[in-house]
């Protein structure tokens, strides 16, 4: 029983990463009809930006220029990295995708792959091959509850992920920008007739998705502090799976699917040798997709390509 609960806690943490990355994948795919294959690398960029922001804040606080408690440094690091990474996302949209709007879908898809490679190797060129450690911002405390070990890091990761997912849900369903996003997901051709700028909503979508990916990157680095430029690739693929599994334009769907993937992976690893984890886990996901080809939730869209 305590083994099960322990794995449940681990699955919640693991699912948090997938859920946050899946949200950005899902929004871009739903609203812009675009597979942004560079999104996993934005997660990586977010983690590295987090390292930089944390280093600056720690230095400032060591010099006494800034008297901040550790938790405040963590919160600031997450927020500032989210903002900075959202600019990276908007830049990717502006130079990578906007010029290709209206180009064949396949061109936009390989654009994502190329931008991904550029971000990975650009990181290598900039920072060199040695691995970079995310500074430890808070001391780890371990709590034992009924034989289950829970760290404060795990709690922070899961709580922040859930808060951000809830915030995204609120944004998409309760604000006028969210309304414009959902409209664009249905019929992007007709959206300008409502006085909505397609470019503006595209930039906003990329900004939000990238900010969430950055948060995922930093939360990941809290648990696994050693970063490398290729860390986003496999995460990106899996989050992409979660995004599709969740269904179009569904914040809830992408979040749940992200957590589901985390659960499947962790519980498969609990039962089977860990070398078989992804083999078995993704066979299960494939079966789910065969049963529910449109994902869990998801909205229809207009197939009309012109006015």
């Amino acid at each position: 029983m305590s083994l099960f609960l322990q794995n449940l806690v681990n699955a919640l943490q693991w699912g948090s990463f997938y859920a946050l990355i899946a949200l950005g994948y899902s929004m871009v795919y739903s609203i812009l009809m675009l597979f942004n294959f560079a999104h996993g690398d934005i997660f990586m960029v977010g983690a590295y930006i987090g390292v930089g922001v944390a280093a600056v804040l720690l230095a400032a606080s060591a010099e006494g220029a800034l008297a901040l408690p550790p938790w405040a440094i963590l919160v600031l690091t997450i927020l500032l990295a989210m903002v900075l990474t959202s600019f990276v996302g908007m830049l990717v949209e502006r130079i990578g995708y906007r010029p290709l709007r209206g180009a064949p879908r396949a061109s936009a898809a390989i654009t994502g792959l190329m931008i991904g490679i550029i971000l990975e190797t650009g990181n290598l060129a900039l920072l060199g091959a040695q691995r970079i450690r995310f500074p430890s911002l808070i001391d780890t405390t371990v709590y034992e509850v009924a034989g289950v070990f829970i760290t404060n890091t795990k709690i922070i990761i899961v709580v922040v992920a859930l808060l951000l997912a809830a915030g995204m849900h609120f944004f998409v369903h309760k604000t006028k920008w969210g309304l414009a996003m959902r409209a664009m997901a249905f019929d992007y051709v007709a959206v300008p007739l409502m006085g909505v700028s397609v470019n503006g909503i595209a930039a906003l979508t990329f900004a939000l998705g990238s900010a969430l990916a950055a948060a995922a990157g930093i939360l990941y680095a809290l648990a696994y502090p050693v970063l490398d430029p290729y860390m986003g690739i496999v995460f990106g693929w899996k989050a992409f799976v979660a995004a599709i599994l969740g269904g179009r334009v569904s914040v809830m769907g992408a979040t749940l699917a992200g957590f589901l993937l985390g659960f499947i992976e962790i519980f498969v690893a609990m039962i089977f040798p860990s070398t078989l984890r992804d083999l078995i886990a993704y066979s299960i996901v494939l079966l789910i997709l065969i049963v529910r080809p449109h994902g869990f939730f998801g909205e229809p869209y207009s197939a009309r390509l012109r006015l």
């Binding site: 309304l179 959902r182 409209a183 019929d187 334009v249 009309r304």
Partner: peptide, 15 residues
Amino acid sequence: RLFENLTVMENLRLA
């Protein structure tokens, strides 16, 4: 070209 996934009120608000 209504946004069929949105409600009547949402369509008006979007406009």
